[in-house]
Design a protein around this nucleic acid. Structure first.
Lengths: 225, 225
DNA sequence: CGCGCTTTTGAGATAACTCAATACAGGTGG
DNA sequence: CCACCTGTATTGAGTTATCTCAAAAGCGCG
């Protein structure tokens, strides 16, 4: 496992050191944008509670095809292991502050029971969240996917600014496409479509103003079969 | 919660009775084909370990659009709650025998630690499985989806019969379509395509012979972007 | 000012969908 | 026992949403 700690200007690899330091469950770690928290196949020594910033969880198919499994936003807990190993890759899209909880805090018994309970319920919640995502990928149109995505993002990281909600996208169009199972061009076109519908304003490509949440909700609703 | 116990010829609703009986973690329960183990929104008193038969986990969008989240096959554990509630609907596709584990056995501390451990790891595995499924839905073509599905099924419930593997499909084409995010006609056409490729033989619509596993694997591999 | 990167827009190709008809199978009743 | 009927599955034909390839636009940076 390669862990890159934030230390400007040059990120330094401190994986071994970190393990020796015996990081507690409560001290926050910092990662620079682009730094990896873990790779697929790494032994899962920690699960990570995002305090600030955004991380990206990806899986890479043998063929090289990327799929973004999830974005980790403040409050999220990422890196649940299977068989003691990470089965996704996780890197920081922005500078992030995380709390690394030892995996043993997730298993029963050891450590603070309150923390254990919190991590455990986060794992159950993760299952539910993934089911939502499954539904979205399988059944929604491009417009519905992008609208749903923007609604979820605005609820999580939107800053309500009088009449509009400002959402600073921490991820690229490519990331959004890989998350929603769309081509990047389709994502871009759909943003334009939502703009033409008057639902959003693209202040910059990364700064979105949600102007008409009703229109966004309407666009997000699948009409079913 | 409505629980229908198998009692031929008429299935009987015994939800209240069941709760009073205080079912233990180790006694198997039986359900007839079509019976519901739980509904979306039910308080999640139990998680279910499938001993034999197949169950179907579905979610219904507000609009009435169905999505099959997963099929529960022997060895699977289904019904992980979120916030104490079931967030899917679960019914039996065939007669099933399940072990109903009290939800408290999933939470730390109470009950047999060995059982707790098993249930807990099943929850973690579930996350990983869902990520695989996510990937499939987002990135694979119809042919790749159906081929992957058949491979997985044949590994789980296939009976190797000399030169071919026999797979009895417990679910309908509609179920497969709703699981893979395809139209039923596309599923059917893809089965035909795999037949024409010599990968499978459709003895009956529900009985599939895997004739050339290599061809099936080849068909299942996404070429990536 | 110009280069490189991301995003947007355009135009044509295509995989999967929809609608429609046919085939098949299992169960029921004459 | 066979004809019928109902539900499921298959096949066909045309439509469409999304993808792919290609070009233009916007933006940051040296």
């Amino acid at each position: 496992m390669y862990v890159t700690l934030l230390s400007e200007p040059t990120p330094v690899n401190f994986a071994a050191v970190k393990r020796l330091e015996d990081v507690t469950s409560t001290r926050p770690s910092r990662y620079a944008a682009g730094a990896h928290l873990f790779y697929e196949g790494d032994p899962a020594d920690y699960v990570y509670e995002i305090q600030s910033g955004t991380v990206r969880l990806t899986r890479v198919l043998e063929t090289g095809c990327r799929q973004v499994i999830a974005f980790g936003l403040p409050g999220d807990i990422v890196g649940f292991p299977d068989g003691g190993l990470h089965h996704t890759e996780c890197d920081a899209l922005t500078p992030v502050v995380v709390i690394a909880h030892r995996r043993t805090a997730l298993e029963a018994g050891e450590g603070d029971p309150k923390t254990h309970q919190r991590l455990f319920h986060a794992a159950l919640r993760e299952i539910s969240t993934m089911q939502d995502h499954l539904m979205m990928l399988a059944r929604k149109s491009a417009l519905e996917k992008v609208a749903s995505f923007l609604i979820a993002l605005s609820q999580r990281i939107g800053r309500c600014n009088g009449t509009v909600t400002v959402v600073d996208l921490p991820m690229s169009r490519t990331d959004i496409a890989d998350f929603l199972g769309l081509a990047i061009e389709t994502v871009s076109r759909t943003f334009s479509q939502l703009r033409q519908l008057g639902a959003i304003v693209l202040e910059t490509p990364q700064t979105i103003l949600v102007r008409d949440i009703g229109a966004l909700v309407k666009a997000s609703q699948a009409v079913g079969h």
